[in-house]
Design a protein around this nucleic acid. Structure first.
Lengths: 349, 349
DNA sequence: TGCCTTTATTGAAACGTTTCAATTCACGAT
DNA sequence: ATCGTGAATTGAAACGTTTCAATAAAGGCA
């Protein structure tokens, strides 16, 4: 039933030795044309397929890398994964995509499996902020690159996006559009990304010569989905001095908020301007297209994979790097003030 | 630098033989308590981690399965993947997620790699409708299950959703709401899913005692993204007898259409009722929440994985099955006729 | 004391590659 | 005729497990 094929059978059929078959497979140029053809024919006839396990065992290293993300269903990570995959495939590697689901246990499980498989390296957005355990991992000879999280320790490569800057350009844009009081809807400030974005806002406000304590109205949610966004509308409207614009820490929050505002009969951007974060695919196809901060997700993945391969292939000369990407403001209808008469592109970026 | 650990070292340190260490790892119950503890301690001290390649080589089979999807970025497939992953992990397997990107070449590449790795089995939504080459694959001893595609041949397991039924309930719903002329916006009818949904519509129309040729207005697009949806508005409004409702073959099309309608000042559902397909996450958070057809994506993945494991573990007794799930209508605001005064739940399903 | 059974441990073979030193062969140069 | 050279091929060792027949030790019973 299952194929019994092995290099040995191919050798027998072609009337050559084991070594020669292996050479045909790995360094065809060193074997005589006539022999090569004979072996190739035997391979085809038998339907021989190399045994990867045996190969890896002998070589000591595998042909795959692990990618551990917090949530496969999050469009952010899928796009990152695509970047990783493209580069890895080009280099002849397979990506094992692992979903930690924000659980330290699942993460640790996956790390263990990957170690057993003698993975070349691991790209990971760690669940915990302490990365000490990843050091142990590295000392066992497996390359590690931190994803979407700048590493504090100098001993780990990392690739991330400048969230401070993201917060800054979002706020600066709204300030320019004439808003002097901006709501910031966000999840817990203990999450580094969120705290960073807030810091960016403060910077922009100060640059504009305003007082952050007056200009920024914090509205904190416990999670960051659309439901929470909608719930925020009440808080927003009952604020002592009502903001004229809102910056949401992600697009789902903005989506919910938008829905709530419409229910309250408040128009966007006239009654309330809105800026989101992530520039998810559907941001541009909402009833009012959403201004958002775009992150180079695909490039993030590519860059991380590149660093990983460098570390894996040049373990001695490798220098740890910290790549930080810049976010980009994508202006759409949801934040354009009415007096703004610049032409409005369709926004199908 | 890298860990030299092997079972041999553990044995030496614990003062036992190779076989005993292996037994501690695989059948701890047969080794004496005292010995077991000594070996365990040696393992911990050395930081020994089993070599998966060697293990697989010996065992002849690997501990992973492959999942080949058309597009990881599609929320449909991510949800399916989640289902597969959960079940596989529980069974102690790792899932290698592969992205064929609709390319036969990439698909074939992945199949080859998976074969080299002696994968237990493959879950695949094939690029081509001809599945003959998958038979070859199976004959080499690798289990195969078709995903989101009913197999014609009886020799392959398959898991899919009843698209005829999906089209039927969508149309029936609109007919019930009082519409007698329904637009159907869709990509090429050569795609089986789309043709099936259309067949379902016809069935519903006939059941309602109407003439399909009059009741259904076809609008075909070449692709199925939001952009195409928006472009359809023109065609829709210029149709000789303008429909009062539209059924879109997926939610992205519906999204675009919605946007176009709003631009034309046509209200939803008053001016035009709308039903989508897939019930993507954001369907419920649009300015007008979208009625859609939900497919049990997660269960689809789970069921497929289950069939795969059955085939892989009981190659002799295994019977090929064709599991077909039923789609479900999720009614939201976009399709409720005004005279409909049933209470309107929030729709955060 | 000697025999039998049970329990625990051992050592070697096997899985399918790759690698590398050793061998063979043919051919041109001496 | 002999030697040296280079190209082509070979065969055995090694990678780190698991498995299994064989052995050793311990205990029970006559």
């Amino acid at each position: 039933m299952s194929s019994q094929s092995s290099i040995r059978e191919v050798a027998k059929r072609a009337g050559v030795s084991l070594g020669t078959v292996s050479n045909v497979l790995n360094r065809p140029e060193i074997v005589a044309l006539e022999t090569r053809q004979r072996v190739q024919q035997a391979i085809d006839e038998i339907g021989f397929v190399r045994n990867g396990s045996a190969r890896q065992l002998r070589a000591g290293r595998s042909q795959h890398i692990g990618l551990i993300v917090l949530d496969v269903a999050n469009p952010f990570f899928t796009e990152v994964a695509r970047g990783v995959e493209d580069l890895a495939n080009k280099a002849g590697y397979v990506v094992i995509l692992c979903n930690s689901d924000d659980s330290a246990e699942k993460e640790s499980n996956y790390l263990h499996v990957l170690e057993e498989q003698r993975t070349q390296g691991v790209l990971i957005t760690p669940v915990q902020s302490d990365t000490g355990y990843l050091q142990v991992f590295r000392q066992r000879g497996i390359a590690v690159v931190l994803l979407d999280r700048p590493s504090r320790s100098k001993d780990l490569c990392s690739v991330s996006v400048d969230d401070v800057r993201g917060g800054e350009i979002a706020a600066a844009h709204l300030l320019e559009e004439g808003h002097e009081r901006i709501g910031f809807v966000h999840g817990p400030l203990s999450i580094r990304q969120i705290a960073d974005r807030r810091r960016g806002m403060i910077r922009a406000v100060k640059t504009a010569g305003l007082d952050p304590d007056r200009a920024i109205v914090d509205i904190t949610t416990h999670a960051q989905s659309a439901r929470e966004g909608e719930e925020c509308v009440e808080k927003l409207l009952s604020a002592r001095t009502r903001p004229t614009a809102v910056f949401c820490a992600n697009d789902l929050l903005a989506l919910g908020l938008m829905r709530g505002l419409i229910k309250h009969g408040i128009s966007i951007p006239g009654g309330m301007a809105l800026v989101g974060y992530d520039d998810v695919e559907f941001a541009s196809v909402l009833s009012t297209p959403l201004t958002s901060i775009r992150q180079p997700k695909y490039e993030l993945g590519r860059a991380a994979a590149e660093l990983l391969f460098d570390e894996a292939n040049n373990p001695t000369t490798h220098q740890h790097k910290h790549v930080v990407y810049q976010p980009e403001l994508i202006v759409r209808e949801s934040s354009r003030s009415k007096r703004d008469d610049t032409p409005q592109p369709v926004g199908w970026e």
